[in-house]
Nucleic acid binder design. Sequence first.
RNA 1: GGCUCCGUAGUUCAAUGGAUAGAAUGUAGGUUUCCGGUACCUAAGAUGAAGGUUCGAUUCCUUCCGGGGCCA
Length: 606
Amino acid sequence: MRFQINTHFDLSMLQIQDSISASIRLGLSQLFSIEAEEIILQETKKEFEGTFTFVVFPYTKQAGMAPPMIAQKLGEFVQGNNDLVLSFQVVQGFLNLTLTAQTWVSILADSLADSDAFQLSPKKEKVLIEYSSPNTNKPLHLGHLRNNFLGFSVAQIMKAAGYEVIKTNLVNDRGIHICKSMLAYQLFGESETPESSGIKGDHLVGKYYVAFDKAYKAEIETLKQSGRTEDQAKAEAPMLLKAQAMLLAWEQQDPEVLALWERMNSWVFAGFEKSYAQMGVDFDKIYRESNTYLLGKKLVDEGLSQGVFYQKPDGSVWINLEAEGLDEKLVLRKDGTSVYITQDMGTAQLKYEDFGANQSIYVVGNEQDYHFEVLFHILKKLNKPYSTGNFHLSYGMVDLPSGKMKSREGTVVDADDLMAEMVQTAKERTMELGKIDGFSEEESNTLFNHLGMGALKYFLLKVDPKKRMLFNPAESIDFQGNTGPFIQYTYARIKSIVRKASEMNISTSWTVEPSITLASAEQELVYLVAQYKLKIEEAAAQMAPSVIAQYVYDLAKQFNKFYNELSIINEEDALKQKIRLSLVEMTGKTIQQAALLLGVIVPERM
RNA sequence: GGCUCCGUAGUUCAAUGGAUAGAAUGUAGGUUUCCGGUACCUAAGAUGAAGGUUCGAUUCCUUCCGGGGCCA
């Protein structure tokens, strides 16, 4: 039996891997009577000859033979039975397989012919992604940028992988924190508005949150001087008592308090909208905790009657999760007010009613790891239909070289400021290089935006989310190396070549002939381009934009190497010229699509 | 204190249990007749410590050290 593919002119990477895996499986069976479950092919390391590597060590015992012997026999078998394989090399227990020249041409032909090259077929599953989750008492900061870019990118990746995706944002718009801003505004605001002050709405509200803190601290000092302990002073300070009273009034629907709350929230939402537009992120639905907490309370009642929760003598409601390796957890305070987890229960219910998704992803910082573990356990105990498919996409804090990022310490990096700074830097760099002659002012500004934001997004997304990372503003504005602008530059370079070729009327259509061979720099580029869909699957399975970031960087790097080694437009052989040009075009499209998955827009010229 | 995450070149980041641990940056040096030099090529440079499992450990297990987070 021979493994042959009829249409040798058109082979996807997946078909090739499957074909070779099948040959290896057959070889193991016929030569050694080993029925392997799964054949795993790896990429051959660069220092060795070959494309795919099969590791035979695991079969040593069953075959009763030394690894190099197994590899030798298996190599001979595969070479003799699979037309795609030209030759093989054995290094210890590693079997390295080299593909025929024609196989490479077929792979390229397949990539070029694939009308759905960047979209996987529908998976018929609905995925809900909740991200951003701001508080309405202050503007967004650096940590939010990581959150928003992550959430948006994962959504893009899941869509490309064939999922139906719904993006949601749960805004924390109620609670003591917003009352603090409101109180300070009442006391010191003097009817200031975003319009009258020229301050962006979220920043204006944030200003009063800071004002509250300042006044509160001053009161604490005074109380301490009159003999109170630190704790007493903190609990007795009039500012805090007033804020607490305001929260109570809010819960009792006090018209005046509600009016102020709505007014200030509208400022914040208007401000957030601008920030989101600048970030390039969006949502299908925005939820507010002020609308979900009551539903959460209902679920608490339900759980009480089911015996999932229990009430302590003081009236507070708890759940015991000791059997799950956790401890007791409060779900409702003794005064009947809800805690975060109460609201999250309500939101989960509401999201299920609205969308009924198969999977629900929460993009939230890792300081909430415990919180989500508890939430998911509670949903299971309540036996809700939405208790499965929940995943907390947890990410680490973004550090600054100077230390931690905490608003209290005043070293917080504001998201709007940072984005503006990145765009400004992009502008300065681009002006220095003077390559944008003929750009209108609007075109220039769009370009600066894409470059600055691309640098920022790529920088934050290339790192594994769960790791704490260091953001160095000074280094991030360096447009060299493994960065967004490097990728954008490579794309612009490709487009320049394509434009020139088009002016010269060079065609990109060609047909597969047995005589065609590809240089190694071409093969490597073909290999990467053909891997696009596999990378999407991988990134979607791991919910990891970093997989895409690494991929698009490798692709850009390999293109530049190819460009350095081989002529494209200047190639004299007409067929080679066409093939290379078609590969260049395909590489450009692939870079563009991959970058888009990260939310990075690549410019035609820069 | 309990639980949890992290520890890799000077620095910032990679590596489904596989080969000589990859990049970038910085440092030192180099690049054709060139289609965009923000490119390409070369060199030096790292797995916190000790055990264990394995043919093979950055990866899995145990203890310790260091850092972060959550719960008190």
